[in-house]
């Protein structure tokens, strides 16, 4: 086996591999936001664990995270959750074979199920966009009350 050269793209291949459609990038962002949300959960458990050390420790850590840096972080988390949830819904629908049409005869130029489910893709992306903008307005209110 030493004579074979492993030609897998690796993690970089999730991000870019060629001129593919939106869905491949949606896949990448789904994984990226998933990892981001996981990171947040670990931090969240770490921070809330301070509650066990009494009220003083809790107030101290809470005032520590009440900073613009963490607010921005929170907003990034909000964006990640909005995207992950809505795109996840689209993937869920696809996994149940919904909004994808029926098998067709492969006659050139080929049409794929991707094209047929693309309206759903744009709808969930638009919804995610609206939610992200609304959250952004809230963030602006935090900085300029």
């Amino acid at each position: 086996m030493g004579r074979l050269r492993d030609n897998r793209l690796g993690i970089a291949g999730w991000g870019y591999a060629g001129r593919y459609g939106f869905e491949r990038y949606a896949y990448f962002f789904q994984r990226l936001t998933g990892l981001g949300i996981l990171l947040y959960f670990s931090l969240h458990i770490f921070v809330t664990a301070y509650r066990a050390f009494g009220e003083q420790a809790w107030t101290r850590v809470m005032s520590g995270v009440d900073k613009p840096f963490f607010k921005l972080g929170e907003y990034m988390l909000f964006m990640a959750v909005a995207y992950h949830a809505l795109n996840g819904l689209r993937v869920l629908f696809s996994e149940l074979g919904l909004f994808m049409g029926k098998p067709i005869r492969p006659v050139y130029p080929y049409e794929t199920s991707l094209k047929r489910q693309r309206p759903l893709f744009f709808i969930v992306m638009a919804l995610a966009g609206v939610i992200i903008v609304m959250g952004g307005l809230d963030l602006i209110r935090y900085f300029r009350p």
Partner: peptide, 13 residues
């Protein structure tokens, strides 16, 4: 997770 790149690239539709 339905990245769909396989379907786009498949030369036989």
């Amino acid at each position: 997770h339905y990245a769909g790149a396989c379907s786009e690239a498949c030369p036989k539709g």
